[in-house]
Computed example of a mutant assay.
Amino acid sequence: MTAFIIRTLASLIAIISMAANATAERVEATYNFIWNGFVVFTAEAVLEQSSASYAINMNVRTRGVMRLFNRGEGDLSAVGTIGPDGQIVARHYVSKGRWSGDDYRKELFFDETGKFIRWERDWPDEWLEDYERAAVPEIMQYGPDGLSFLMLLLTESPPAATRVFDGDHVMEIRLACARGSELKDSRHSPIKGAATKCQFESETVAGELIETEEQQQKRLKEEEKARKKAERYARRHQGEDEDAEEDEAGIPIWLQQIEELGYTLPVRASFKSDWGTIRMYLKELKTSDGVHLKP
């Protein structure tokens, strides 16, 4: 798995895990990820919750030009409990799929307090060789996992900073929001108009990646090769990035109140990759009430 795919998938999970203030028992959202005018990823997320528990499932798959570089599909799921005070406790997380011809699976188990108990990981040997990390202190081995992070954002006052544990590293996720943004028309999504713009940041605080100089050079070489290949493809096919003027550093995310449904959802996002800027668009929404939002 290339560094590009790892970072893209990590950002993908964090971004889609932001369906805030949902009121229906079941929400289904489809997002497309666009690079240079081409769809390169599609993600379908489903959230089901009650007053005492939650279940989240997500399917991520490569599309179009991305399949020329990395054919892949991944399924992620998380379940947990919701305490009387609204406390979110992760209990079980699974990530499995197939990328570039390699099958993989990772499963995490947490106790009733959300403390990590054990994991089961079945990864190709090549991935394990390129993925050595420093040990995570036991005191930091607690949920939420990347998908259960969603439930923290369903509260009326989501935390400005949250630490997420995925079995071998801890990431701190920070979110700062301000109203007053305006989304223009886009052929990629039915959403436009007034929105709240948030700046998403993440930082590894434990379990840092350990690379030898040789591994680092190998990674940089692969990233540069992928970038040049993507640039050649873009020139030949004359792709068009209609939102290029919005390009900026970091990961900006736009949320919008969808009045007819009663939701505030992430509707667009933008983040950097080895290929350049990739943009996320909400394509379709369905709730347990049977209401749809689609182009």
Rank of each mutant, 00 (worst) to 15 (best):
A3G: 06
A3S: 12
F4S: 04
I5H: 07
T8N: 10
L9C: 12
L12A: 14
A14N: 14
A19L: 09
A19I: 04
A22Q: 03
T23F: 03
T23C: 01
R26G: 00
E28V: 10
Y31W: 00
N36M: 13
G37P: 14
F41H: 08
T42S: 11
T42E: 15
A45R: 13
V46D: 13
L47S: 01
S50L: 04
S51G: 04
S51F: 00
A52H: 12
Y54H: 02
Y54S: 01
N59T: 11
R61E: 11
R63C: 07
R63K: 07
G64M: 10
M66H: 08
M66C: 11
R67D: 12
G72Y: 07
G72V: 05
G72L: 09
E73P: 07
G74I: 15
D75C: 01
S77A: 13
A78W: 11
G80Q: 14
D85R: 00
Q87P: 00
I88C: 00
Y93P: 02
S100K: 02
G101M: 01
D103I: 01
L108S: 14
L108P: 13
F109T: 15
T113N: 11
K115D: 09
I117S: 06
E120K: 10
R121N: 03
R121Q: 07
D125V: 00
Y131A: 04
A134K: 10
P137C: 00
E138C: 00
E138S: 01
M140D: 05
L147F: 07
S148A: 13
F149Q: 14
P158L: 05
T162N: 07
V164E: 02
G167P: 05
D168M: 00
E172C: 11
I173R: 06
R174L: 09
A178S: 13
R179Y: 00
R179S: 03
G180V: 06
G180P: 00
K184G: 11
S186N: 02
S186W: 01
R187Y: 05
H188V: 05
K192T: 11
G193Q: 03
G193D: 04
A194D: 04
T196G: 14
Q199Y: 15
Q199G: 15
F200C: 13
S202H: 15
E203F: 15
V205F: 06
E208I: 13
E208G: 13
E214R: 08
E214Y: 07
Q217E: 14
Q217M: 12
K218P: 04
R219C: 01
L220S: 08
K221E: 12
A226K: 00
K228M: 08
K229C: 02
E231H: 13
R232A: 14
R235Q: 15
D241G: 07
A244L: 11
P252W: 10
I253D: 02
E259P: 09
E260V: 03
L261Q: 03
Y263G: 02
P266N: 05
P266V: 08
P266S: 08
V267K: 03
A269Q: 06
S270Q: 15
F271N: 10
S273W: 08
S273H: 11
W275R: 14
I278A: 07
I278L: 12
I278D: 08
Y281C: 01
Y281K: 03
L282Y: 01
K286R: 15
T287K: 06
T287W: 03
G290F: 05
H292R: 13
P295R: 03
